[in-house]
Write a protein that binds this DNA or RNA. Structure first.
Lengths: 197, 197, 197, 197
DNA sequence: CATGAATGAGAATTCATTCAT
DNA sequence: AATGAATGAATTCTCATTCAT
């Protein structure tokens, strides 16, 4: 009888928001941002077209939110609050964290990678703080390779990055045709750790 | 002025076709297939919208042609006419061929990779002979790793693929921000060759 | 705390109604009926969208009420209960009443004029008693001009109406940029009175 | 067989543009900008919805063009290239020009006035050169009244403006119910001339 | 072979209105 | 009496495609 409280409304909004963003991530990844219509998105999320606009200003704003969310997750993995020097243990921890996340949230990451590889989306990334994070991380890695006596630190950075990102691409291309066996993932993870510690 | 001969007409048509496809590759890569309009494409290619339809039945047909062209180039690299057994020298030749092509036609490959990574396009690949080629090549590689005594051939396949594809992704993400130094590319190429021969 | 009495409820309702109508008049005038959304209207009136529908059946009904209110005010000015013959004193009284109302409720009248000039609204006026009032008043004026020996009573009616309405338009166009000095208004008022008595 | 020449295309575009703008003026006036849909506009102009967007970037841009056109016509009437001083003959000429234009293009002017009185449109006028013209003209009139010995030039400016604009409003309110007899218009025109020369 | 005006189906977006709480 | 999430019809706008010239 009495109207919902502010708190109740906030809870509703929060849930709905996530629900829409989840659907959007999936559809943007499977159909591509440009080929995915708001209509289909709404019906997949089991809401009306209009409601989407109650939560996001536009299709593009929805994309922004989805990206933002994923970038935050990535930044979480890269772990920002460092003193700028990477120890061997930290590198191991970092690699384990990445692969552990890939394993436990495989579908999420594949979808997200698929989304951010789209040209329209790449453009958006330019102004994001993620760029800063990545650069910071890269120089930490270079420093690490130098200190560990690797002959050509920059080559190692390329190699390291290529292996991680290449693995992502493999997953992405395999999906949704077949799944990588968990055991194989672990071996690959260990291979990288062995190479660099 | 005598009328153009049949041969001349054919030459014009051929040139125009290539000109359109080149523009399409660039725009599909930079803006994404879904965000690229025929209008912009035509004006970029310096022809009229109508003329495009004189050369390609539809936007999708144009995409098909662009993909087809690129896949043929890739299949050329993978080298189809094999007896099914890969020698060490052949692998080296193969790797050198890939990297050489990347170096000499860097922009082309980046654009092409960007195009075929788009979800809409991935779908198209399902029915293409390229899939067959890739599978054939994969089993050749597995065979090779087995014969060369690698402990876990499948892991090596993943590693090998990840390195190559990951390198492509690095290039793609760097483009058009900065260019990889040629020297670094060569080192990476040698690193892969060293690992697997 | 005892529950509110019926009377109190009615008072609240009445106040709220006026509050909504005032906001509506302002927004309909400033943004135009068609460009003014219920959402903005509600937030301007500091109530919820839903509540608006508790007081008015629809946006159009709200417009109706706003118009009705203004028309009543105008009819009040024109003074309906007449024997059909206008004396010189009555005309003076009438003109003074109009200008006095304009001066004391300048903003209100400007907003109202702005609203009823909108095409959508003009249509509504067709069926209103106001038309009847205006016609009645016009023939009274014609009669008056005839009796006072004006050469072309119809021309005078046009002239008289044009001056009054034209003044309204000037106000409307000036608003909200600058205000007419009160003194000037008085002079203009006297000019009309001088012309016609 | 051969494609149309540039000139032919330009001619087509010019004609169509005018045709669309004419329809727009009528509909914006009769239904109001906000209540007039592109669909109805297109079908009234006997073109497809899409074509409108080939000629105007948006509904708002179309409105802009319509306004621009009308303002140019008005500025034509006000006659810009003056030395800043108004002679009695010039004033007569000016008044005659205005009324002559009203008589010969009555419907056009009514529609245009109806359009620019809409709140949404009033806003647009702020940045237009017309404002400058009107101000220039006003000061010329003030100067004129002063020189001719009118007691209160500013009052006369108000009176003069009110008569002209008020007449426009009368026309606008009468339309499309009944038409003013031409004879009456002439008398009113002469009345203004008599008053001020 | 070449052009760009024209079409129309369909996509994004808006907003009056309803309704559970 | 009061709230704002939810709806969906209507609206603006886009763009692949056609076609007269």
């Amino acid at each position: 009888m009495s109207p919902r409280t502010r708190k109740q409304f906030d809870a509703i909004r929060h849930t709905r928001r996530l629900q829409i963003m989840e659907t959007a991530l999936k559809l943007f990844a499977l159909e591509g941002y440009g080929n995915c219509t708001i209509s289909r998105l709404a019906s997949q999320a089991a809401i009306s077209k209009g409601l989407m606009y109650n939560y996001f200003d536009s299709k593009e704003a929805l994309l922004e939110s989805v990206i933002e969310q994923g970038l935050n997750d990535i930044m979480e993995l890269i772990d920002p609050d460092h003193d700028g020097v990477l120890t061997s243990d930290e590198l191991v921890g970092f690699i384990r964290k990445i692969f552990s996340s890939i394993r436990s949230r495989q579908e999420y990451w594949i979808l997200f990678i698929t989304v951010i590889m789209q040209p329209k989306v790449k453009t958006h990334l330019k102004d994001k703080p993620i760029i800063h994070y990545v650069e910071q991380f890269s120089s930490m890695m270079l420093e690490y390779f130098k200190k560990r006596g690797f002959e050509d630190p920059y080559l190692e950075l390329v190699n390291f990055s290529a292996m991680i990102e290449g693995f992502g691409v493999l997953l992405m291309y395999a999906y949704p045709i077949f799944e990588f066996p968990e055991e194989m993932m672990l071996k690959f993870e260990n291979r990288i750790i062995d190479m660099y510690t």
